[in-house]
Every structure is written in structure tokens, then in C-alpha cells.
Design a protein around this nucleic acid. Structure first.
Length: 272
DNA sequence: CTCAGATCCTGTGCGC
DNA sequence: TGCGCACAGGATCTGA
């Protein structure tokens, strides 16, 4: 389940292997992803030179001199650069073959990901145009969070998971950052104190940065077929710990459903 | 406008 | 041991 840190790690991992490389051809074995891969994707990408590999929210962008590819890993997507075309496995859906023989391989069992062609100014693409601020940017702080949550009655957890407000905060890190902030996930978004907005934005940044740092150790694996990049055995305080004792106070971790997502919290540490 | 819920997909892990 | 089912969740759409 790639969240922002995993996507960032993927981006950093594949970037040096793709930069300035030219695409020879693309093999699309399965085009039925979350939305169909454009039929002319391979054609559009042929002989294109990858100028830059970047991330926006949970999207990875391969930029050409004109146009580019917009990749989302969905729930179970992986990108890996391999030395050759050998050893294709089940659920390997797309291969981008470079002139140097290396292969950027997309693997995605659940096919929740997407590959879109990017045309014209990036920021105008429908998938990018409405995205909120980057959580690790200076724009994301207590003041911003307070401003965008004003008058909102939906749970604060739903608000910080809303792409239009802030990108890249999925269920795991939303759950964790609320615990670390001592805020109950059902608290109406508009009713936090300024100190709570500050604390929450700070904890979101902190938990994401920590995860990215942990991911740095797996960067070398992006060129290793046997490696397992992108997933961190990070210590989680509440996520997935339903009915276990709180690591802070010993109370039993509860779980509720918010917007269809399981949400663990400590009734004592997150009372208010 | 605001917000909740359904939808897409398949591997995993649980109970019986 | 094996079967069946609930569950996992990001983005997008629908409808109250």
C-alpha cells in the first residue's frame, strides 16, 4: 500500500537509472488498470528521452521534452528497473524498454494504479490540477490546515486524507499522525484549536519524513530483481493494533470505520 | 456546496 | 487440510 513515502522512495530509486535514458519501446501486457492505458501510449513514448523523474502527491511523472507519463501505483503497484526482459512474473503489466537494455517494470496485482499520457502544462492535467499542497512543503502548516478546515464538519481524519486539501496522506499515516497529535479521529475538522492544527501538521510531516528516511536504505534494491523496495517495517503506534494495549498508556486500542476506512485510535490518548 | 457511500481489483488471513 | 468470505484502500463518481 504505497503512501507518499513509498512513492517518494520509488521515485528516488528509479530516477538515477532513468534520467537521460531514451525509451526504445513499451510493452503493455495488461492495459486494464484503474483506467485503461491509452492505446497509443507505446507509440507516443517511442524514442522519447526521459528528462526528469518527479513526484506530485502519489503520482510519479516521467517527463519528456514534450509530454510525459503520469503513473499512479494505486494500492499494490511497484516500479522496478531490471537489467533485462527476463523473468516476467504474474501481474507484471507494463515494461518500458530503454535503449541501454534496462527495463522499467510495472507490477500491480490489484490493478488500482494508472498510466496516463501527460500533455501540455503538467498543472493543467485533470489528475494534477485539483491537488492540494504537498505535506512536506512550507505551505502546509497549522495556519493552512485551520484555514481549509474552517466550517467543515466532516471528521478531521477524512479532511487530512482529502487530496484537495493535502496530498499523500493515506490511511496509515492519517491514523498515526492523529494518535501522535492526541486528537480523536472523529473530531469535526473545523473544531480543532489552533494549537491542534499546528501539532497535527507537524506530526504529519514528522511521520512522513521518518518513513522516507527509513526507505532510503532500500534505494539500492531498485536495480536488484530480488529486492523488496518500497515497503517499510516501520513501527506503527496504532494502525493495525486493534485490541492491543496502547504503547503510551496501556489502554486498549479501539477501531472504528470512518468513510469506509478502518481507523484505530486510543480512547485515552485521543480523548478530545 | 458538503459529505457519505459505492466502486474498481486480487492476495491474505481468518474462522469453521 | 481446505474452503469461503471479509478485508485491505486511492481516486472518482453518484446521490442524498
Amino acid at each position: 500500500m504505497p503512501e507518499l513515502p513509498e512513492v517518494e522512495t520509488t521515485c528516488r530509486g528509479i530516477s538515477p537509472l532513468l534520467q537521460q535514458q531514451t525509451i526504445k519501446t513499451i510493452h503493455i501486457y495488461q492495459s486494464k488498470l484503474r483506467q485503461p492505458v491509452p492505446e497509443n501510449m507505446a507509440q507516443l513514448c517511442q524514442n522519447q528521452k526521459i528528462q526528469e523523474v518527479s513526484r506530485r502527491g502519489k503520482y510519479i511523472i516521467l517527463k519528456f521534452s514534450q509530454g510525459g507519463i503520469l503513473i499512479h501505483l494505486g494500492m499494490t503497484g511497484h516500479l522496478r528497473v531490471l537489467p533485462s526482459l527476463l523473468d516476467r512474473k504474474k501481474h507484471d503489466h507494463i515494461d518500458v524498454i530503454l535503449n541501454n537494455g534496462h527495463v522499467l517494470r510495472y507490477h500491480d496485482p490489484r490493478r488500482f494504479g494508472s498510466w496516463q499520457w501527460l500533455e501540455g502544462p503538467q498543472q493543467l492535467h485533470p489528475s494534477l490540477s485539483k491537488l492540494g499542497v504537498e505535506p512536506l512543503s512550507a505551505k502546509f502548516d497549522g495556519r493552512y490546515l485551520m484555514q481549509v478546515c474552517q466550517q467543515k464538519k466532516l471528521p478531521i481524519k477524512s479532511a487530512i486524507m482529502d487530496n484537495h486539501i493535502v496530498v499523500g496522506v493515506g490511511n496509515i499515516y492519517a491514523t498515526e499522525s492523529l494518535f501522535l497529535s492526541g486528537i480523536h479521529p472523529l473530531t469535526p475538522a473545523g473544531s480543532l484549536s489552533f494549537d491542534q492544527y499546528k501539532k497535527l501538521s507537524y506530526e504529519i510531516k514528522k511521520v512522513l519524513k521518518k518513513a522516507i528516511e527509513a526507505g532510503g536504505t532500500t534505494l539500492k534494491d531498485f536495480m536488484n530483481p530480488e529486492g523488496k523496495p518500497g515497503y517499510f517495517s516501520q513501527s506503527l503506534y496504532v494502525y493495525g493494533r486493534k485490541n492491543s494495549p496502547c504503547l503510551n498508556c496501556g489502554d486498549i486500542i479501539q477501531s472504528i470505520t470512518i468513510s469506509g476506512r478502518s481507523t484505530a485510535y486510543c480512547p485515552t490518548c485521543q480523548a478530545g
